[in-house]
Amino acid sequence: TIDDAFRAIERAIQAENEGRYREALKHFLDGGEMIVTAAEKEASQKVRNLLLHKGKEVLEWAEHLAEWILE
């Protein structure tokens, strides 16, 4: 659900702030994927587009974090 997705993102932010970057990455990926999944089930085109945009933002952040971890 969207609530689960945002809880995962909150955990990711907390982990990132505490320097637990790999854990943060996992939570960002989980949250982003949950948002995209919820968007695919959404009946309203406007809400679907907003959710897809937010999911994409979260997944892009996860990608940047992963690249930073690997440096």
Rank of each mutant, 00 (worst) to 15 (best):
T1C: 10
I2Q: 03
D3Y: 11
D3S: 13
D4C: 11
A5V: 07
F6Y: 10
F6V: 06
F6A: 02
F6N: 04
R7W: 04
A8R: 07
I9Q: 01
E10W: 13
E10C: 14
R11E: 08
R11I: 09
A12N: 00
I13S: 01
Q14H: 10
E16F: 15
E16K: 11
E16Q: 15
R20N: 10
A24R: 02
A24I: 01
A24P: 03
A24C: 07
L25R: 03
K26G: 05
H27I: 05
F28M: 05
D30W: 11
D30V: 12
G32F: 15
G32I: 15
E33D: 08
M34T: 03
M34V: 04
M34P: 00
T37I: 11
T37K: 15
A38W: 11
A39M: 07
A39G: 04
E40T: 12
E40I: 14
E40L: 15
E40K: 15
K41C: 10
E42C: 13
E42L: 10
A43M: 13
A43C: 12
S44A: 06
S44N: 14
Q45P: 14
Q45L: 12
Q45Y: 08
K46R: 12
K46P: 08
K46C: 14
K46Q: 13
K46A: 15
K46Y: 13
K46T: 13
V47R: 12
V47D: 06
V47G: 02
R48G: 06
R48S: 07
L50I: 15
L50A: 11
L52P: 03
L52C: 14
L52H: 04
H53P: 01
H53E: 14
H53K: 15
H53D: 11
H53I: 15
K54D: 01
K54T: 10
K54R: 07
K56R: 11
E57M: 15
E57N: 06
V58M: 08
V58F: 08
V58H: 00
L59N: 01
E60M: 15
E60D: 09
E60I: 07
W61V: 03
W61K: 11
W61A: 05
W61S: 01
A62S: 01
A62I: 09
A62N: 00
A62G: 02
E63P: 00
L65E: 00
E67M: 15
E67H: 12
E67G: 08
W68N: 01
W68Y: 09
W68C: 11
W68E: 01
W68K: 06
W68D: 01
I69G: 00
I69K: 00
I69R: 00
L70F: 11
L70Q: 12
L70W: 13
E71R: 07
E71H: 12
E71F: 10
